[in-house]
Amino acid sequence: MRVPLSLDQIELEAPLPLNIWDGSGVLLLRRGEVIRNFEHRELLRSRGPMVDEEEYRQWTFRYTAEIDRKLRGNASLESIASVARPMGLGPDRDEQAVPVHMRWADLHTSLGLLLHQGEQAQDFLRRLGLIRMRIDEVLQSRTDDSLFVLVQMLLDRTLGYSTGHALLCGLLCRIVGKLLLKEPSQIDALINAALTMNIGMTRLQDELALQAEPPSVEQRIRIEQHPLLGERCLQHLGVQDPTWLRLVRLHHTKLHAMGSLEGAEPLLLMAHLISLIDVFVARISPRVSRKGLPSQRAARDAYLAADGQPNPLGAALIKAVGVYIPGSYVRLASEELAVVVRRQRRANEPLVFALVGRSGMPLGEPALRDTSEAAFEIKSGVAADEVRVRVQSAKLLARL
């Protein structure tokens, strides 16, 4: 439950002690961010700021407890009056102890707010930098879990599609980019571009995912213009990295096929890769207007260029994440329907949890299967729309 917050209690330029939301549930500022000045405070005040009731109670308790301590110690009135509300709730929680699905849900909220604010976003570069830092932290040892959670997020129509798409594209660009690029600055630019390439149509992208009819003429114009609009938006927000900006502008441009990765010009390679990953993620994502493709169909399309010849970047993507990306669904030789949870040494032999038995009935407890075993080898991929079993990510990942 959330309660109204008087912003006069918050010091300017001091790290916030708790998250601030508006009345409709949109996160305005994260704990640790700052209200920069009086104008910023008034802008937040106009949104009807709210805070979590329990967090507010903890914060207020620390303030009143300090006053009570001084009263009991017979402190002077001046000393009591000088007590300020503590800006912080004590030591930050151990992020590594927070379940990975909760960490990605938090990142989804943070990035979604930034992308929807667009040109109106304040402190854009600093906030995106914090998001990037937290992404790096969660990926230190949880890459497969992260792929699983982000793919499952894309299948959840209650979540903003555009943000989920951006996060998965960013993660895939990070994984594949580290295999192909030598310079850290190039990898950074690639990830930043993947996270922000659709900032010129974030709200529209969310609407299109829930729209049954084809895009209108006005929507098609916006779709065609969004790379250029995105580049201009990012320039307005202070982005000066020319590689980041060019990748956003080029991510929908049709490029000549790459025959080889050897000696390829880095910018061209990066432009091809971000375009390939953008399309791959879109193809596995279901919309109201169409089903998502099974993972191996999307992987096959990425592997083969338009002329039917192998695409070296598609091969690199499959080598990095497998034919069946964690979070996608497959049918086994045992006739069980399963969800992929772990990549293994062979790209087409992941570790899975069987969800539905050969009888067509959900299993009481998902069963872990190794698809490298003949009895449980993968028979085919399954589109997410064909799965009627609700996956409980936290419970499955806790068993690995």
Rank of each mutant, 00 (worst) to 15 (best):
V382G: 03
R249S: 10
R290K: 12
A81H: 13
A81M: 12
E53I: 07
D241E: 05
R85W: 14
L114W: 01
E335H: 15
S141T: 15
F353C: 01
D278Q: 09
A384L: 04
P350I: 06
E377Q: 15
F280T: 04
Q309L: 12
I175C: 06
N37T: 04
I175V: 15
L18I: 06
D92K: 13
L16F: 01
M1E: 09
S359N: 15
S275D: 06
L154C: 08
D206N: 14
S393A: 14
G32V: 07
E78P: 01
I274P: 13
F148M: 10
P99C: 00
R93C: 02
P310K: 07
L317M: 06
V288S: 06
R134I: 04
A302Q: 01
P312Y: 01
S146R: 02
A305W: 05
H251T: 07
D188Q: 14
Q296W: 10
L228S: 11
E11F: 06
G32P: 08
V330T: 07
L397R: 12
Q152N: 15
D106I: 00
A367S: 10
G118H: 03
K395N: 09
P294M: 00
V100R: 05
E336W: 12
R358A: 14
M201Y: 10
E78A: 09
A305L: 08
V26T: 12
L44W: 05
Y56C: 04
G170Y: 07
G48T: 11
L337G: 05
L128E: 12
S24I: 12
A316P: 04
A299P: 01
L355P: 10
R297I: 13
G381D: 03
R232F: 00
R388N: 08
E377V: 07
I135D: 02
L155M: 11
R142E: 15
I277V: 14
P4S: 02
D106S: 11
K178R: 14
L111M: 09
L29I: 00
A398S: 11
A65K: 14
Q205N: 08
L208C: 02
S76C: 10
R331D: 08
Q117N: 11
I175A: 10
Y63N: 06
A75D: 05
V3L: 07
N19K: 14
N311V: 00
I274V: 15
S76T: 15
L154M: 11
E54V: 12
T163A: 11
F148W: 09
A193K: 06
G90P: 07
L107I: 13
R45I: 04
V340M: 03
G364S: 05
T202W: 04
L267C: 04
M133N: 13
L276R: 01
A193L: 11
M1H: 14
L18N: 06
Q296R: 09
C173Q: 06
R369W: 02
I378G: 08
D301I: 13
V321M: 05
Q344M: 08
A320Q: 10
P184F: 03
R157A: 09
Q211G: 03
V330F: 04
I67M: 14
G129K: 15
E262F: 07
V382H: 07
C169A: 07
I274K: 08
F280K: 03
A105F: 08
I20P: 02
E183I: 07
M1I: 08
Q235W: 08
R2P: 03
A298H: 02
